[in-house]
Nucleic acid binder design. Structure first.
Length: 470
DNA sequence: ATGTCC
């Protein structure tokens, strides 16, 4: 443990404000699994203008571009900043859980066919495009309106919308803040999965920790669930790239003296900060629409192969910045919360939640690495009071992609999944090694920590039956 | 994460 960190409690470590830090940094994790580069990154975040309360690291923290992945930081909207590195390149990368309306036995009996059908319907892999064609006018409607626009176009049902974070639509956005290049990269990728850690997984609920909440969420022991993990593809990536460049070129003086160039940012109130916020929200809407279209394809697959309907459980964002209000030093303060590899975890009574989840708190989805468990949890008041309504987002890497490629073998991983009875279809062997379970922390441990800390609570555990990867 | 280097 670096000398700067003090243990404050079980899974709570504090780096007291020192040097250029404007606030403390708090690490919520077991110490053994953390790399020191990521700790330095959350310390760097605490030096940024307008940061309020504390910077937080979740138990799945690992090194990222500028900000660590698994980091949460809130900046005052009046004198704080917004930073593309605090959101991530895959803007509104997130996870959506579906539940199959019917017996597990039917799905298990047709698993191979089902995985194959989904693989045919959803384009996967780097740079993969879809056959769906949207006019520029429709594309503009989609990225400014999100999931509801594609539902209107026939991809899903109006009831889906209240089961998406922010109803799958973020209002503050203007298409004129999006570059032509971002449009070009994004126009043919709606309805595609992508690569890297993105996946579609068919799972079975093996354990329910809170039956009442599980019932509200629509799952029970033995339920078949489907997880979709993807984001805004080349569209969001280009928007991040564009605005990092604009901020570097146009805000030289403001960004002078950063502890790390990758922390490049704009004052939130500055026209460039507002333009990034707007373009980022276009990418967020794109990602919600993307997961909605993929849901439609999965529903088609289940209908044709099993004759079963599929319902939405919930859809969460884990790479995004949002304006929210919190009590800070007894004062209601409007902040721009950056959740990078962190999941919103609003508790019971939060007015931003639909009536459906008003009494329980919002569903939270924490996927594991390939072949391991995934969890459905519920948000808490404690998260709202402590971590700006945030919790972890996944297992978190322990090996970089390059290290994983060097140390692990795709064939062995394929065999291990086969032995476990998990059906895998993947576009590339490279993706398999990079996403091997050995390259990640143990998701069970991450979930145990957030549950014990009370920043979200376990509801159900799912294990994989079939995996589709890029 | 990503038309995995403009």
């Amino acid at each position: 443990m670096p000398k700067v960190a003090e243990k404050e409690g079980k899974y709570v470590y504090r780096v007291k404000k020192h040097g250029e830090m404007k606030t403390d940094a708090v690490i919520l994790s077991d110490w053994e699994t953390i790399d020191e580069e990521a700790i330095q990154q959350i310390i760097n975040v605490a030096t940024l203008p307008g940061i309020v309360k504390e910077a937080y690291a979740m138990p799945d923290i690992h090194w990222g571009y500028g900000f660590p992945i698994g980091g949460v930081a809130a900046f005052d909207v009046e004198d704080g900043i917004i930073s593309p590195g605090g959101v991530g390149f895959d803007i509104n990368c997130g996870v959506r859980m579906l539940v199959v309306d019917g017996p597990a036995s039917i799905v298990k009996g047709r698993l191979d066919e089902l995985v194959k059908r989904i693989y045919e319907l959803v384009p996967v892999g780097v740079g993969e495009t879809s056959d769906l064609k949207f006019s520029k006018k429709d594309f503009k409607r989609i990225v400014t309106g999100g999931a509801k626009v594609v539902v209107e176009m026939g991809y899903g049902q109006p009831e889906d919308l209240e089961r998406i974070e922010d109803y799958g639509s973020i209002e503050y956005c203007d298409f004129s803040d999006v570059s032509d290049e971002a449009y070009d990269r994004g126009k043919d990728e709606l309805g595609t999965l992508g690569a890297g850690n993105h996946f579609i997984e068919i799972q079975e609920v093996v354990e329910v920790y809170d039956p009442e909440i599980a019932k509200v969420f629509g799952v029970a022991p033995g339920s078949i669930t489907v997880l979709i993990h993807t984001g805004s593809r080349g569209f969001g990536h280009q928007i991040a790239t564009d605005y990092i460049r604009y901020m570097r070129d146009e805000l030289k003086e403001h960004n002078k003296g950063l502890p790390d160039k990758q922390l490049i940012n704009a004052p939130f109130k500055h026209s460039l900060g507002q333009a990034y916020y707007s373009a980022m929200n276009c990418a967020a809407n794109y990602a919600f629409a993307n997961r909605q279209i993929i849901t439609h394809m999965i529903r088609k697959a289940f209908k044709s192969v099993c004759g079963l309907n599929v319902k939405l459980v919930y859809d969460v964002a884990h790479n995004i910045a949002k304006v929210e209000e919190y009590q800070i030093d007894g004062k209601t303060t409007k902040v721009i919360v950056h959740r990078k590899g962190a999941t919103r975890a609003f508790g019971p009574g939060n007015p931003k939640l639909p009536a459906l989840f008003r009494e329980t708190g919002q569903p939270v989805i924490i996927p594991g690495s390939m072949g391991t468990a995934s969890y459905l949890l519920v948000g808490t008041k404690k998260a709202e009071e402590w971590t700006f309504g945030s919790t972890a987002h996944g297992a978190g890497r322990t090996l970089g992609r390059r290290e994983a490629t060097r140390e692990l073998s795709a064939d062995r991983i394929i065999n291990e999944l086969k032995e476990k009875g998990v059906k895998l279809m993947a576009k590339s062997k490279k993706g398999i090694v990079e996403e091997a379970p050995e390259a990640y922390k143990n998701v069970d441990k991450v979930v145990q920590i957030v549950d014990e800390l009370g920043i979200s609570r376990k509801v159900a555990k799912c294990v994989p039956l079939g995996v589709i990867k890029g």
